[in-house]
Design a protein around this nucleic acid. Structure first.
Length: 604
DNA sequence: GCCGTCACG
DNA sequence: ACGTACGTGACGGCA
């Protein structure tokens, strides 16, 4: 799979270029050889690929001919040796595999000891690359859009039955075989469109290989200290009980603390506190408001405390143990590849990309994520990845200079904003500069910055003006990104990933300005997403080639977490750092911070 | 099923 | 006059 190296050092960075018009900075290696493809679709008992078992497999080699192979139907003829026969075909590296959401099928097959190999054509991922704004890339929807065909929905075939295995064999065959055939039909149509849009490089060399990386991550999962979570739950119970009675005492009555509606009545009617912000449905009781009100009253202060602990208890401490898989004893999150508009992954059931990190409870919860016996966790995260990417795509001299010298970027920005030497930068100034740097990446506006810093929009505008004075490259990038979006109706990342921005010419100022911020932010956030995907594929490949036992287990946007045998610690650290820092060659160097320990808190 | 809220990058 | 920072997922309340 040498094509992955194409992403590496493929071309000298073009500092003049702002938003890449041409889709990619790497040449197309070769179109895949049109060997006979096999389209397949797995029918299984449920929705959880790690534990569910297979019911049947649909196969299609050419349009008009599709088959259904019943494996474990409740009634009728099953074909006992089918899996063994199919294993050979599915594991044949020379036969490309076509399917819709292949990660799911591959995971189910792993349960049966079948390790799918070979080139992949996933029609769901094709649909995603063609338009990542779409909320639904189900086979139903993709068929509707590209084949103008309304598929019979799965729920209708299932009826009131509990499992696909109970569906009468004729119905099951009809349904399953059609799925396999539709994927085969979609493959050619979508591939042509990908080519036309300049997306086939991303498709074949990034999203398809990533499927194998993500299936491994999902299959391996992460180990959790269940007993410790149960202790933490009791501890939180006690604390919450105390705070709860305190809140009732201060309020002078008991009410449902978790109801924002009831809290509003207490705060703004009974206690007569000033409502500071509105929501669609009433007065806001969010963090910003409660923090402000805390200055004058004890109730909002206690509410903040309560909300923090309640959130941690319900969303993490109590939820995680329920998701430990009975077979593996570990937690197997889903890494979703077709959700975000920017190209990032998302994680669900559970979301392991938003595990708490801040505060004492953040540490306590991260300590629960532990390495297996004889193993260590390695955490490797990109330092300032988005600002480094901004430096590259904008070609801003000041930013590139700062990163080339590995200068603390927020302190550097503070010296520029306040016109002072770095020795004079205070904590407060650095905090402001940090917020400005974040704002720049988001498509800064005086109002947004003023909200974030709790200052007036006028003061915020002064900071922004001062920032652009020192960074005209960044200013030019922003103007170009918006211009590009207006002319084309979309923006692209450095690797050519597309995101349509249909609202860019809206007559509604708010909508249009929001679209402009997307045009600015998406190439940055999206390029960071592309970059870490390249690193993941290369690391996965090298671990495999080197027969290492080190396993990638989580991706958190700019961080990768690995479970590493103690004996592999040194080589793994070296390999990971090298592949992450050299995933792409940018005009601002990439920097990776690496840490390790027995649990995630220690590793970070 | 939507809303507000809040955990993360 | 309005109302905005970018990207997610999960929880409880409420209609």
């Amino acid at each position: 799979m040498e094509q992955f190296s194409l992403f590496k050092n493929s071309k000298e960075p073009e500092t003049e270029q702002t938003v890449s018009e041409t889709p990619s900075n790497s040449p197309i290696a070769h179109s895949p050889s049109p060997v006979t493809c096999l389209s397949f679709d797995i029918e299984a008992t449920g929705r959880n690929p790690i534990s569910d078992s297979i019911v049947g497999i649909a196969l299609c080699k050419e349009k008009g001919k599709a088959y259904y192979v019943p494996i474990r139907h409740a009634h009728g003829t099953n074909i006992p040796d089918a899996l063994n026969i199919l294993k050979e075909v599915l594991e044949d590296e020379s036969i490309p595999k076509v399917g819709h959401n292949l990660k799911y099928d591959i995971l189910i097959l792993r349960q049966e000891g079948i390790h799918v190999k070979g080139r992949l054509y996933d029609t769901m991922l094709a649909s995603y690359l063609l338009n990542p704004n779409k909320p639904d890339h189900s086979l139903e929807n993709v068929c509707l859009e590209y084949l103008f065909y309304k598929k019979r929905p799965f729920t209708e075939v299932l009826g009131k039955r509990h499992s696909f295995s109970e569906v009468p064999i004729d119905d099951a065959t009809q349904y399953a075989a059609e799925d396999a055939e539709l994927a085969m039909e979609l493959k050619d149509i979508l591939f042509e469109k990908l080519k036309k849009e300049g997306l086939e490089d991303l498709y074949f060399n990034m999203e398809m290989p990533l499927i194998y990386v993500l299936t491994d991550m999902e299959e391996i999962g992460v180990r959790i200290n269940k007993e410790r979570l149960e202790e933490l739950s009791k501890e939180l119970d006690r604390e919450l009980g105390i705070i709860e009675s305190m809140i009732y005492a201060i309020a002078g009555e008991s009410f449902n603390i978790n109801s924002p509606q009831q809290l509003q009545k207490i705060l703004f009617e009974k206690l007569g506190l000033k409502p500071l912000k509105k929501t669609k449905t009433g007065y806001s009781t969010g963090v910003d408001v409660l923090e402000e009100l805390s200055k004058t009253h004890q109730l909002p202060a206690e509410m903040l405390n309560y909300r923090t602990l309640y959130k941690l208890k319900t969303t993490y401490v109590d939820a995680l143990p329920k998701l430990i898989d009975k077979k593996t004893g570990r937690i197997h999150s889903s890494f979703n590849q077709t959700v975000t508009a920017t190209g990032r992954l998302s994680s669900s059931e559970p979301n392991l990309q938003n595990i708490p990190i801040r505060g004492e409870w953040g540490t306590k919860i991260r300590e629960v994520f532990i390495a297996d016996k004889g193993c260590i966790l390695i955490s490797a995260d990109y330092s300032q990845i988005e600002l480094r990417i901004l430096a590259h795509i904008s070609g801003d001299k000041g930013l590139i200079d700062a990163f080339s010298k590995d200068i603390d970027i927020h302190t550097r920005t503070a010296t520029e904003l306040f016109n002072i030497p770095k020795e004079s930068v205070t904590e407060e100034m650095r905090r402001i500069a940090k917020t400005v740097n974040f704002g720049v990446v988001y498509g800064i506006s005086p109002f947004g910055l003023s909200e974030a810093l709790n200052i007036t929009p006028k003061e915020a505008a002064t900071y922004i003006e001062q920032y652009f004075n020192k960074h005209d490259g960044v200013k030019n990038y922003m103007d170009d990104a918006v211009k590009m979006a207006r002319e084309n109706g979309y923006v692209r990342t450095l690797m050519g990933r597309k995101r349509p921005i249909p609202e860019i010419n809206s007559h509604n100022t708010n909508i249009r300005q929001q679209a402009e911020r997307l045009a600015i932010n998406t190439p940055i956030q999206g390029t960071a997403a592309d970059l870490i995907k390249i690193a993941m594929i290369n690391i996965w490949q090298r671990l495999k080639e080197g027969n290492l036992k080190t396993r990638m287990i989580l991706q958190i946007h700019d961080e990768l977490l690995f479970e590493v045998p103690e004996t592999e610690l040194e080589p793994a650290k070296k390999l990971i750092t090298h592949e992450m820092e050299n995933a792409l060659s940018l005009s601002a160097p990439l920097k990776v911070d690496i840490g390790w320990g027995k649990n995630w808190a220690e590793a970070h």
